[in-house]
């Protein structure tokens, strides 16, 4: 397979994650969109590592991306729990106390 095919898959992943982040009102749904976007970046890095002179460096950066994604999921879950304890909902549209 060529590099372009992998980049196309990553582009679709990125767009789906972006749509998820923009449309979901569930806080954890937004988090899943972030995971998809990070996954698409990861796929791009590995594809470039395979097909260009990037070599093993691309895989190392992809590994860092995976670690960052896991850490971000843990912190975001804690934030979502706090949010739920304060607002009794996970609707991100309800968190508008600063606006009022």
């Amino acid at each position: 397979m060529t590099l372009g095919a992998y980049l196309t898959v990553a582009a679709v992943l990125f767009a789906a994650g972006l749509t998820c982040m923009m449309t979901k009102r569930h806080a954890l749904g937004v988090l899943m969109g972030v995971e998809l976007v990070l996954n698409s970046a990861c796929l791009n890095l590995v594809a470039f590592a395979r097909y260009t002179a990037l070599g093993i460096d691309g895989q190392i950066f992809a590994l860092f991306v995976i670690v960052i994604a896991a850490a971000e999921a843990a912190v975001a879950l804690a934030i979502a729990l706090n949010y739920y304890n304060n607002f009794l909902t996970v609707d991100v549209d309800r968190g508008d106390e600063l606006k009022r």
Binding site: L28, A62, A70, L77, A80
Partner: peptide
């Protein structure tokens, strides 16, 4: 990228998605 694929399976499927499901259940 065999190591990375295994790490993806372990970290994402074994960790992140499970954390997300936990969050769904807790909220």
């Amino acid at each position: 990228a065999d190591f990375l694929a295994a790490a993806q399976l372990l970290v994402y499927l074994g960790g992140t998605v499970v954390i997300l499901v936990f969050g769904v259940m807790l909220t």
